[in-house]
Amino acid sequence: MTALLDHLLATPLLAIALTLAAHAAGTRLLKALGAPAWCPPILAAALLLAGVLALLSIDYADYRRGAAWLMLLLGPATVALGLPLHQQMPRIIALWRPLLACLPVAVLLAAAYAVGIAWWLGAPPEILAALAPKSVTAPIALGINAQIGGPVSLMMGGLLITGVATVGFVSLGARLLGIHDERIIGLALGLNGHALGTVRAFEIGPVAGAFASLGMSLTGILSALFLPLAWRLVGA
């Protein structure tokens, strides 16, 4: 059994097949449950996949090596987000003034709230550093992490928890505040919840998706410029 598993894991095929299967199963499962907004299909799929990996006692590092072939497509997929951004450009340009006023503040707060709470609860500086890029899309967050430090695995975990929490809180908050505007919901999703939020926004609609892409890319760029500078100023 172990020998067979090792043999199958020698190529990326098994990891890719498991990922596709979990994605299909997770999507079906949630559809059967009536697609609750607080639980994105990807969370259900990821839980299923984690369960299968644990059951077959496949090491996460081994799985990840195979799945890297799938993640390679993240690069062109990120570039592809430029298309909805282009298609929605008239709406974005019509809003350039509020966007310019709002985005830097929102980006700064996304990091400041989390770092502030962790600092208040007595977390050491390296953990604060790992939490700071929590709303930034993974490839950029890795670049920021290289500059300000902190454990990488904790930072990646923080990104994922933030993404899932954002999807839940945005649908909750939009209902509480009575917001139905796809532009506002999309921006909030992309700005706070990076790729996970953007994926959710495309489920809501193309306008939400485009504004989420905008929020995600601007958060990434502003954070990449702001955070290392702010870190040096605070002297941590």
């Binding site: 990807i42 990821a46 997929a77 975990g157 996970l196 495309f202």
Partner: peptide
């Protein structure tokens, strides 16, 4: 590609369940 974005970030999401010991 945008339609399968969720699938592409899944391997990373699964990693979240394996970092509990990194919480120190």
């Amino acid at each position: 590609l945008i339609a399968v974005l969720a699938l592409l970030i899944m391997p990373g999401v699964v990693g979240a369940f394996f970092i509990l010991d990194a919480l120190e």
